[in-house]
Design a protein around this nucleic acid. Structure first.
Lengths: 297, 297
DNA sequence: TGATTGACATAAAGAAAGCTTATGGAACAC
DNA sequence: GTGTTCCATAAGCTTTCTTTATGTCAATCA
């Protein structure tokens, strides 16, 4: 005879309320069903646990002993289950993700705010990292998912494109090129360029684009932060090239932002996750928020 | 979706061994059955608890969290159940009983020894008491059962006759009456009698027998303990009247023991229990031992 | 005292779950 | 590429559970 959780809960209920009928009502089953449950539990332990009296039931010595150990046990179990359900309902949890600095500064804040609105209890831990690191952190499960450029890498990672980023040239409105709607790559090759340092994926993207067009890039200035580039551009040091997703653009409303053309410089920013892992509910919530942000919903 | 103990145990097993197949084998079910169990558990909490990998399964973050709280919980439960089964198997437990002093000194020791032989772990707590007290202690559940004379009392007590005790006259072999096989009551009325004090049920029994025959008893000596009466008889102070069940008889092999006749003096000694309570297993063991002792088995 | 009430037990039948066998698909190794 | 190892799925059967209907017993009330 097997001991079931249902049987134990039934016993706890009867022992607590001193009545089969009453306990059955509270358990939403009929009294005969409960009688059978208790009988099976008693058969399971090999003992009579409840004495049936003319006006109810009361525990035997063994029943009292069981109740004493059972009650905190059931409580702990219920607590553990409730706690898991909180995770499922996104009332609790932590999203860990690795994103490109540009995304961390632009797309992400809005998405987090959006997630907070519907799931205020969820925590977020953001790691800023360059593309290679993002992949590595996803692979090692240091983060639940990542956002980086599309590298189509080895390993069991799955990619889902989020948006297409294009590189913009940021230059003073007074600059001759500012009159064009978009600036051909070739025109930029001879300008004083303000570029990120070469370990960033954006710099590599720009370098590659120029290289493909037969140019070798010799930046007038390099910097680690895009904000620095914007500052430089504002003081007339040259033309800053930054991705359209970068929030730093808004830091310089007096500068003109023009897409690069012929060829345009693009990168696809994707959501990266291990294909053999499902997303925790909290992460799922943030991904939803990200997608909604991108859809403009 | 309901969460079952079986499902939780199944989860614990898979999480511990990292494999459905292996866990299923250990649980003595087939792998598909286990798959279904886990699926139902996951549906129950609303979360994926195990990631299925090409060569096994490993817990998700939620799964690890559950395992952490679940494992001690299952252990406690198993312990509690094992503990109850110990009670059922009579490997543990305490018998509380109230018995007449004469029974405590004669029948009981053998029965306890007999019980010890088969169930060495059981404890016994014996209360010696006169009949009225025995009934009261059974009624108030101070003891599991009692042994006393049959009073056919009120209340929800059930009686089961154990044996018939007869009153013996203990006298020196040289005494004239010692030549008779049994001694008529009337002959005793004029002898120097050694009787228990008047609050004992045996004394009352003797008094009643004499009274019914039209005699008034004037004992030569009274005593609280039967051993005292035996000692007095041995020194020739008179004829001691004690129940046949009394172990004290064996203390005086040199005295003659003769049943009283015309009429004989009997009492029925019964096992007394609440009819609305079942006996705990330990008590059951002692009752069995008692019955076996009486049956001479 | 006898009817009534309240409480648990039992029985039978229909509903629901659980298990097993058989089969499928994916990843990995050689 | 073939075989192996896992887990998932499907179908059919068995077992268990639950409900409805009824029984029994003891306490209560008239």
């Amino acid at each position: 005879m097997s001991i079931t959780l249902k049987g134990l809960r039934a016993f706890a209920m009867v022992q607590r309320y001193g009545s089969f009928t009453r306990a059955a009502a509270l358990l939403n089953i009929t009294q005969p069903a409960l009688t059978v449950q208790i009988r099976q539990l008693e058969a399971g332990v090999g003992l009579r646990l409840l004495e049936r009296t003319p006006r109810g039931a009361e525990p035997t010595a063994a029943g009292r002993e069981l109740a004493r150990s059972l009650e905190p046990l059931l409580q702990d179990l219920d607590h553990a289950i409730a706690s898991l359900r909180d995770l499922a309902a996104r009332r609790r949890g932590l999203v860990r993700l690795a994103v490109l600095p540009s995304v961390a500064a632009s797309l992400l804040p809005g998405a987090i705010a959006r997630m907070r609105a519907s799931h205020p209890e969820l925590g977020v831990r953001v790691h800023e990292a360059v593309t290679g690191q993002v992949y590595e952190m996803v692979r090692s499960e240091e983060v639940d998912f990542g956002i980086a450029t599309d590298l189509r890498p080895g390993g069991a990672l799955s990619l889902e494109p989020l948006f297409r980023d294009q590189i913009l040239a940021l230059l003073p409105p007074s600059h001759a090129l500012a009159r064009m709607q978009s600036i051909p790559l070739q025109k930029l090759a001879t300008e004083r360029l303000l570029l990120l340092e070469s370990d960033s994926s954006i710099r590599r993207l720009v370098d590659d684009a120029f290289a493909s067009a037969g140019h070798i890039v010799a930046p007038a200035q390099e910097a680690v932060h895009m904000g620095t580039l914007v500052g430089m551009a504002r003081t007339g040091l040259g033309i800053a090239m930054i991705p359209s997703s970068a929030a730093e653009i808004t830091m310089a409303p007096e500068l003109a932002a023009r897409p690069v053309s012929r060829p345009g410089i693009h990168r696809v920013v994707s959501l990266i996750r291990r294909s053999d892992r499902s997303l925790p509910p909290a992460a799922e919530a943030l991904v939803e928020a990200l997608r909604n942000s991108l859809a403009g919903a």
